[in-house]
Amino acid sequence: MARGGINKALVMRARQALLARGEHPSIDAVRIELGNTGSKSTIHRYLKELEESEAEQARGAVALSDELAALIAPLAARLQGEAEETVARMRQQCDAERAEFEARLAEVQEQIRLLEEQAGSVAAQLQAETKRHQHSREQLQQAEVEQARLRQANQDQAAHLKDRDEQVRSLEEKHRHSREALEHYRQASKEQREQEQRRHEAQLQQVQMELRQLQQTLILKQDEVTQLNRANERLASENAYRTQELVEQRERLERQAGELAALHGQLVQSHAAKEVLQERLVLLQSEAGELKATLDTQRQEAQALHIGLAAANTELQLLRQAIAGEQERARQASEETAAERQEDF
């Protein structure tokens, strides 16, 4: 009898526990699993019986296992072939859709690049027109300043001419007074002509000399007035020329403003086209995401098929184990029946 109260069932449970942990069911390992009880010879005998029993069960299950394998192998091969065919078809479809999407994406990117180049060119033209507009505006401001200066000079010349006119009128007034004084002197000299003839002649000569000086002064003033009139005419001509230049510059500015507005409209259209292309790019990216999601779903379905195949293999193994258990129980029942018959005899 085995010492320590061990039996075959305890040895079998200890052996199964070691196998479940992935350990080799040696005599010492089984004895340690049993709590260091039982003799090694008894454990060795029980282990040998268990190994022989498993070998017999394996030999008995070979025929049924081969038959089940022969039935399941075509089904498994068919499932594997259908799964691989489905995966290949889905992969080809996905590659075609990916190639089409990449071609469309490249086309859209090329359109975006062309629009960006066009927008850059329009922006450069707009900047150049803005600089020309600024330069024309500065020229207009300079022309306005020059016109204001000429207007002020004209006003100064007019004031100067007015002063000259006042001086001429003053000289004429003096000349008139002189003539009146001369006439009065003549009237007075009639009464004293004989007594003051010489003094009268001397005074008359002096007055005539002063009159000649006044006339010469008047002639000089008239020459100055003529020169001032000529200068005024020249300034008026220059003012008219400056005014004509100012009108032409304003017309050029108006034309440049119209061209600038047209370029701005083209830039707005370019931005609108760019936004439309960007929206199309977003839609294409969304479609790409949907295609990717479809591909992921198809991959998940293929993985599910693989998992189903693995589950079928697992069920096959479990079925084999169940058949082996049934055969073991049938063998044990036959052994018990045989033992009972021997006891009866």
Rank of each mutant, 00 (worst) to 15 (best):
G4K: 05
N7P: 01
K8W: 01
A9P: 00
M12T: 03
R15S: 11
R15G: 06
A17Y: 04
E23M: 14
S26A: 05
I27N: 05
G35N: 06
G38D: 00
S39M: 09
K40M: 14
K40L: 13
H44K: 11
Y46K: 06
K48E: 07
S53A: 10
A58F: 07
S65V: 03
A73M: 04
A73G: 08
R78P: 01
A83L: 08
A88I: 08
A96I: 07
R98W: 04
A99K: 12
F101I: 05
Q109Y: 04
Q111H: 03
L115D: 04
L115G: 04
E117W: 04
Q118E: 15
G120Q: 13
G120A: 12
A123Y: 01
A128Y: 15
E129K: 12
T130D: 09
R132N: 13
R132C: 04
H133K: 08
R137L: 11
Q142Y: 04
Q155Y: 06
H160Q: 15
R164F: 02
R164V: 01
E166Q: 10
Q167S: 06
S170K: 13
E172I: 10
E172S: 14
K174D: 08
R176D: 02
R176K: 03
H177D: 14
H177P: 10
E180C: 07
A181C: 14
Q187L: 06
E194G: 06
E194Y: 11
Q195M: 03
Q197F: 14
R198T: 01
Q205P: 09
Q206R: 08
E210L: 13
Q213H: 09
I219T: 10
L220Q: 15
T226R: 13
N229R: 15
N232R: 15
N232H: 14
R234A: 05
N239V: 03
T243V: 14
E251C: 11
E254D: 08
A257Y: 05
L260Y: 09
S270R: 08
A272C: 06
E279D: 05
V282E: 01
G289P: 01
E290V: 14
E290N: 11
E290A: 15
A293M: 10
L295V: 10
D296P: 02
A302N: 04
A304S: 00
I307Q: 13
L319R: 11
I323D: 07
I323H: 11
R329A: 12
R329W: 06
A330I: 00
A330R: 08
R331M: 06
E335G: 07
T337Y: 10
E340V: 02
E343R: 15
